[in-house]
């Protein structure tokens, strides 16, 4: 019994040390295995701390739609644009990503997505950035079973205890986990492919997407190739995401951006051939930041889309130029506005 108690002390001490080390050295928050997450983390913690002019945070839709290099060329040589778009997880993870980014780097403008409905996704790397501070303060974080946020006072003690202990436990074994992750990554990288992917991300400012097919989806082509682009598009109706967990985190992201003197823009990229947002949704997003709605009719050419959710390189060029130059921004009263 005495030895078992000693073993427990060893585990507790090592866990405590791991907590301290991972809080003191951000590189121990790196997840290593997922290429895009890994690149995002290096941008936050390890690279030079040059200010970012435009930071794009959001789903794989925005990842494939906004090409930072085109935006940099359009805006001028000294502009720095980074695309943190990645497989969709949810606004809660976006919020934590943004929080850590703003704590570590100056971001002048933030480009977020504008969407009519949002779901919470799951990804094995979604807990990456959680620090002890996040675990203790952001109790809503990873409350992913519910689409609607609950005040902390209404969360059951069991839920709070479970969330806190799970995440603290996760952090408590972070250091050896990172080392093991590095070992796995090293094994994966014996042919240098992993390094090449990271290099591509770095050169493309995050726009590179090896895990999304470069070619257009044959099923998508088959379905839409004979259809003519629509002349007019309908509007959605209803509020969109107001009152949901996404709304809760979106407001927090906007508040966070304000605290760091970062301007917030929203851009709109619906699924292929879907319509403009509802006036209510436009009003909602306009309250949070400047909502930039591209003219969609000309974007709905089949060559510009890989599949129903993602653009091709040609589509991304068009969308990026539209976005940055702000030539055609449609507001709820159909006035055209340009980006300041």
């Amino acid at each position: 019994m005495k030895n078992l108690l000693r073993i427990i002390i060893v585990v507790v001490v090592l866990s405590g040390l791991s907590l301290i080390v991972s809080e003191m050295f951000p590189r121990y928050q790196l997840s290593v295995l997922d290429s895009k997450w890994s690149w995002i983390e290096t941008q936050i913690y390890e690279r030079n701390r040059r200010p970012v002019d435009y930071l794009i945070v959001g789903s794989s839709g925005i990842w494939t739609a906004l090409d930072p290099l085109i935006m940099e060329q359009t805006a001028g040589t000294h502009t720095r644009v980074l695309n943190f778009g990645r497989n969709w997880v949810g606004r809660d993870v976006d919020y934590i990503t943004l929080k850590h980014t703003l704590q570590n780097r100056r971001v002048k403008n933030l480009i977020l997505e504008f969407s009519m409905e949002e779901v919470i996704g799951h990804h094995s790397y979604m807990r990456h950035f959680a620090s002890i501070d996040d675990v203790l303060q952001e109790i809503q974080y990873l409350q992913r079973d519910s689409q609607k946020p609950q005040p902390q006072s209404e969360l059951s003690l069991k839920f709070q205890w479970r969330t806190i202990s799970q995440m603290l436990g996760d952090i408590a074994v972070r250091v050896p986990r990172v080392w093991m992750g590095r070992a796995v990554a090293w094994l994966q990288n014996r042919d240098g492919s992993r390094d090449r992917v990271q290099q591509e991300y770095h050169q493309a400012r995050g726009f590179y997407f090896p895990d999304i097919a470069q070619q257009q989806d044959p099923a998508f082509l088959q379905q839409y190739k004979r259809m003519q682009p629509p002349k007019t598009l309908p509007r959605f109706s209803g509020h969109g995401i107001e009152g949901t967990l996404a709304d809760f985190y979106l407001r927090r992201m906007v508040a966070l951006a304000e605290a760091y003197d970062t301007k917030v823009y929203f851009t709109y990229l619906p699924q292929f051939r879907q319509g403009y947002p509802s006036p209510e949704a436009l009003q909602y997003f306009s309250r949070l930041g400047l909502a930039l709605i591209p003219e969609l009719e000309s974007l709905y050419q089949i060559d510009y889309w890989r599949d129903e959710r993602h653009l091709t390189a040609a589509g991304a060029q068009v969308f990026s130029e539209k976005m940055l130059r702000g030539l055609l921004c449609l507001y709820d009263n159909h006035q055209l506005k340009t980006i300041p």
């Binding site: 030895n3 000693r6 073993i7 060893v10 585990v11 074994v173 796995v184």
Partner: peptide, 20 residues
């Protein structure tokens, strides 16, 4: 006992890595 403690701790980390 210290070696056993280390193994238990590494095991916890492995569980976390597998869950990732």
């Amino acid at each position: 006992w210290s070696a056993r403690g280390g193994i238990v701790y590494v095991f916890c980390a492995l569980i976390a890595l597998l869950s990732e």
